[in-house]
């Protein structure tokens, strides 16, 4: 039995331990916003927040998530109630196919929590742990800058 705290919910899962966190979030909890592409920590699609820090959940065993607060893209906003970072990505269209987008948004969220007033260059480096194969990078940087401005406004 594994106990996880995901998106403010406690769940007990009767699963074997040799599973990755990404796999369990997707297949046992139906959180398909946890995208899995490379399965080796290169692409960042599977990024989730663990105690507020971005983590490649494809490299974590499910038990490593125990006792920690896990947030997936589903935990930060819904189509009817978007997070400001999500709004900013729509407004600057920081995506094309958007397979990578949940990962970028969660990475941005954690980054902006620590760097509320970043430069474009800082954002560009901070967003380099995620791959966008469609190549929306310049618009991703602009999305994060717009999100920063939105968050400063709320703060």
């Amino acid at each position: 039995m594994v106990n996880l705290h995901v998106n403010s919910r406690n769940v007990d899962l009767d699963i074997k331990p040799h599973r990755t966190l990404a796999d369990v979030l997707r297949t046992e909890m139906g959180l398909i916003g946890v995208r899995v592409s490379c399965s080796e920590g290169e692409c960042g699609s599977c990024t989730v927040l663990v105690d507020g820090r971005p983590c490649t959940s494809c490299l974590m065993l499910v038990n490593q998530g125990e006792g920690k607060s896990i947030v997936t893209i589903e935990g930060i906003g819904t189509p009817d109630d978007l997070d400001p970072v999500q709004e900013a990505f729509i407004e600057e269209q920081g995506f094309q196919c958007a397979f990578c987008t949940p990962g970028f948004i969660l990475t941005a969220k954690a980054f902006l929590a620590e760097n509320p007033n970043p430069t474009h260059d800082e954002v560009s480096v901070a967003m380099s742990g995620n791959i966008c194969r469609c190549g929306a990078y310049p618009y991703i940087v602009r999305s994060v800058m717009r999100a920063a401005a939105k968050l400063r406004e709320f703060a």
Binding site: C38, E40, E42, C43, H120, D121, V123, S124, V125, M127, S128, G129, N130, I131, C132, R133, G135, Y137, P138, I140, V141, R142
Partner: peptide, 18 residues
């Protein structure tokens, strides 16, 4: 056949000013 040694450009590899 992996993204470690098949090198895709990342955000900071391309100018955001483009």
């Amino acid at each position: 056949a992996n993204l470690l040694d098949y090198k895709l450009l990342r955000c900071a590899d391309f100018p955001w000013q483009a």
